[in-house]
Design a protein around this nucleic acid. Structure first.
Lengths: 205, 205
DNA sequence: TGTACATCAGTGAACGCGCGTTCACTGATGTAC
DNA sequence: TGTACATCAGTGAACGCGCGTTCACTGATGTAC
């Protein structure tokens, strides 16, 4: 049997496997279940093994978050590519962002937790910076030319904040009645976005 | 000495004292330090004492969150009262909301955590509903008449989501350079709000 | 090609910790007579 | 006004738990000669 041998002593790619296990756990058990020990267990490895690949728990979390931001950036790039009309791009990116965050709620929670607490300064090469940049470009390309560099930054942050707030709030229990009334979460998101200036999908000149 | 006797066996107002202790702890140690045992300790009482006043930990947390939402509602009402011009109200409420959330970051974290996970359905008498209603009214009063009931609800939620996202994001480490460039968090908030349609402080008709 | 050895990624047991919660209890309070 | 007793809000010790992390170790791998 060549396919699934009993695992050898040396794993071979444990770092990647641990990140994978962490995401599996997030998806199946939620963010509260994400302990280092549980991740090791899920990966079929002793509790001490992860320390050969990550300095401590937070370093694993950051790796997971970075992978999430990379995938989110991919989604945003795809949305961008599929939306030739610049004035419609920001709406498309907003929808893609919301779709990602709500399909991976637990991951997204880890991502924003990391964004808040991460120690090292975020240089522009980080995947999180990429996400920010993509939002920013979409805003710029969709609006009339002229604003200063600072205005551009602020508009990008505003768009990001609005969509971030929306996906966070989509988890509020209290809004479930109105979600139901509108026929589901998707419809709810679209409806609220239509009221969020930046994502209204109409050029404003 | 009549002022500060050694505490009597019966506390007298332990429920209130526990909520107070929890908030003290939040302010001084942050949200991660908020264990039931730590709250009891802070209140000078045994770890079992809280169970005479709260079913379990989450019930204490909800009481803390409700108190927070009540105070936030007070702030919003104050802002409303101080802003006679209806079209300027929503901007004033946004600023008040952000001020509250950022002056009490740990409390606000507990508040949104509770909003997410709270079991019982939130009826309209809850303080959280009051906050939602206040945002909603300000949006309505500041815009042209005519929209349907549903539009009103959605516009209120949009405003709420935008400001919630902004205050959450204000904690992101990665944005610290731009905060510094603008001369502080206050200035940063104002600047981003100016780019968030709903809070721009200009009537849109 | 074969052997010695350094390197490295694992193991598994143990550390100390703080947590939420339960339990049998006890001290204080207030009410009935 | 005084006493018996039910009620209630506390105590403090204990429960079982899972956590992050460390430690001395061992099995596998690959390189030097």
């Amino acid at each position: 049997m060549s396919s699934s041998e009993a695992r050898p002593y040396h794993h071979g790619d444990l770092r990647r496997a641990l990140i994978h296990a962490a995401r599996q756990l997030l998806e199946n058990e939620g963010p509260d279940a994400l302990s280092l020990r549980a991740v090791a267990r899920e990966a079929g490895v002793s509790p001490a093994a992860p320390y050969h690949h990550f300095k401590d728990k937070s370093e694993l979390l950051e790796a997971v978050a970075d992978q999430g931001f990379e995938e989110l950036a991919d989604e945003l790039r795809r949305a961008k590519a599929e939306t030739p009309e610049p004035t419609e791009r920001i709406a498309a990116l907003g929808a893609a962002y919301a779709g990602f965050a709500l399909n991976r709620r637990a991951l997204y929670r880890v991502m924003s937790g990391t964004a808040r607490t991460r120690g090292r300064p975020l240089v522009d090469a980080s995947p999180q910076s990429t996400v920010r940049t993509l939002m920013l470009e979409a805003v710029v390309e969709g609006s009339a030319p002229g604003p200063t560099e600072l205005d551009v930054q602020l508009a990008g942050i505003a768009a990001w904040a609005a969509i971030h707030g929306l996906v966070e709030m989509a988890n509020f229990k209290m809004l479930e009645p109105i979600k139901a009334e509108l026929g589901g979460e998707q419809a709810f998101l679209r409806a609220v976005m239509a009221h969020l200036g930046v994502f209204a999908g109409r050029p404003r000149d």
